[in-house]
């Protein structure tokens, strides 16, 4: 008790010597000042909870139940075991790695083209709009266009034929189907990454660039020691959004261009989820969704960590 009193006496008060000590009043919990911010953010949080978190929890919950005659019955991890034994799931998981290999390509393409535009190459305004144009096209339309372009008797193969290269059924062969779709995806979406890069360039400190020039830094040195560290936040952001875009935004192209085939060669988790749902196995599809969620979470966090080191951000 004395200790408690002693500790209390340590609390600094605004009592000044010579004034009568005022008995301390307990702070009121619910003042306008303390509740107003909560009230103001409540709608946003409520929307997030009701439309994002709650369905997510329902989905996870649903993935522990069975399908068809076992509808609504708790079956533990059976759906996850089924997934682990499904060749399509194996193919989808393998293909995620292929997709990740294409992420640096898209970031590099966007980065290098953004640099050219930043350096104001002749016609940079024209190129900026041209690069961004495919972003506004629907994946279904892009898929339909490239179905024709990449067809066995399509223009690309005609070009091959004209220069004496072999004909390739780009979308009908296991080793070329997914890379073709990813190539088209990069073409269709790098414009967005490019715009983000351009926004990032505008934040590069001109004084640092000038200082580097005065110190006699070469162009590669300037890029490596000044521009990349300055753009580290932007590069991180582009990497993460491009990865998420590739993992969750390929459905339209896959659906129109390969339908997952040949075999399961171009299956991705997202396509598998849709396919399983169509096979009247919504609970199994939920399990696949949970795996995809975890996968994106882990990959996203790892990427941020790796990129922080790579871009030398302190």
């Amino acid at each position: 008790m004395t200790a408690l009193l002693g500790s209390r006496s340590d609390v600094p008060t605004d009592v000044r010597p010579g004034t009568t000590p005022v008995p301390r009043r307990r702070r009121r919990r619910f003042t306008v000042e303390s509740t107003a911010p909560l009230l103001l953010v409540f709608p946003a949080i409520a929307i997030l909870l009701v439309f994002r978190v709650y369905p997510l929890i329902l989905g996870v919950n649903f993935s522990f139940t069975g399908d068809q005659e076992l509808n609504g019955v708790f079956i533990g991890l059976d759906n996850y075991v089924t997934l682990m034994n499904d060749v399509r799931f194996h193919a989808a998981a393998r293909n995620v790695i292929v997709v990740l290999l294409f992420v640096p390509i898209e970031v590099f393409v966007a980065g290098i083209l953004a640099t050219f535009i930043f350096l104001k190459v002749p016609g940079h305004r024209f190129y900026r709009s041209v690069y961004f144009l495919p972003v506004v096209l629907s994946p279904i339309i892009i898929g339909a266009i490239f179905n024709i372009v990449l067809a066995a008797n399509g223009p690309l193969n005609e070009l091959n034929r004209a220069v004496g290269l072999p004909i390739v059924d780009w979308l009908g062969q296991s080793n070329s189907a997914l890379p073709s779709v990813l190539g088209v995806h990069i073409w269709a979406t790098f414009g967005m990454a490019l715009v983000i890069f351009l926004a990032g360039f505008s934040t590069v400190d001109q004084e640092l660039l000038d200082a580097a020039r005065i110190d006699g830094a070469t162009l590669p040195q300037t890029i490596w020691y000044v521009v990349i560290p300055e753009l580290s936040q932007t590069i991180q952001f582009v990497f993460v959004t491009t990865t998420i875009g590739m993992l969750t935004g390929l459905f339209g192209l896959l659906y129109t261009m390969t339908a997952g085939g040949p075999g399961a060669a171009s299956y991705l988790p997202e396509f598998l989820i849709w396919k399983l749902n169509g096979e009247a196995k919504p609970a199994l599809a939920s399990a696949a969704s949970v795996v995809l969620l975890l996968l994106i979470l882990v990959i996203g966090l790892l990427q941020i960590r790796v990129l922080r080191r790579a871009t030398k951000e302190v």
Binding site: I57, L58, V60, N61, F62, G66, N71, I75, L297
Partner: peptide, 19 residues
């Protein structure tokens, strides 16, 4: 994320969601 998953797992004990 951990909190969300924990909440999800807790709810699972309440039984499966019917479609």
């Amino acid at each position: 994320a951990a909190l969300g998953l924990a909440a999800a797992l807790t709810l699972t004990a309440c039984g499966g969601a019917s479609a």
